[in-house]
Nucleic acid binder design. Structure first.
Lengths: 104, 104
DNA sequence: GTTGGTAGTCATGTTTTTTTGACTAATTGA
DNA sequence: TCAATTAGTCAAAAAAACATGACTACCAAC
């Protein structure tokens, strides 16, 4: 046992956690698209040029684990899966907006 | 020439830029320490357990290039270098605070 | 003139993230 | 039954980020 193997939460920097949860090549864009309503796997692939199945799948999974997105099986005609902003995700919108409003 | 080789600004996601500028293993913590006043290379190394010269140097350089920090040679007794929040850096504080206020 | 503090760079190696391409599996429509 | 759409998984490779250790260079004190 080492002297300090924290689960690597933000040891001293509260902003670190939320930054990590939104960081990565595709998460910001996925979050942004989710602002306009539920997003779907294949649709995201088409909307994110240069993306790929693996990366989008990983981003969705991690954002779900971070409780930013909620995964729902929609029992409709083509039977598909939707990812929607969770309550926490909704709460993050203000943070996201403050970043959007900040233009270099 | 490809159809779209942007300098990879935020092609469609305004938040992406600011997220990238604060992302990384050490930048959030450096930013946070810079809130309390000018920071210095060796001091940061001591204050950030597990960090190393290379990583801190890179973080400082990138944050300087992103115009978050301003590098100044202080013409005093021991003659040293200080990194201070730029105007843009100051403007980012509100964004940072909104992240700090957001507790999981 | 040697030690110690300032602030780094450089080459290399390891680790993490991202991409690629093949493959799976259920459902729907013709 | 065949083809397309849904939503993925898996192994491997490539790329990016991060760490290690040696080295540089300036200045001041002893």
């Amino acid at each position: 046992m080492t002297t300090n193997n924290l689960p690597q939460e933000e040891a001293s920097c509260p902003a670190e956690g939320i930054l990590k949860q939104l960081s990565g090549k595709w998460k910001p864009q996925i979050f942004r698209l989710a602002l306009d309503g539920p997003v779907r796997f294949n649709s995201l692939l088409r909307q994110l040029p240069g993306s790929n199945k693996q990366s989008v799948a990983t981003a969705l999974k991690e954002m779900e684990e971070a409780d930013i997105l909620v995964k729902t099986v929609v029992q409709e005609k083509p039977l598909h899966i939707e990812y929607t902003l969770s309550e926490k995700g909704q709460a993050m919108v203000s943070v996201f907006r403050s970043m959007e409003g900040f233009l270099n």
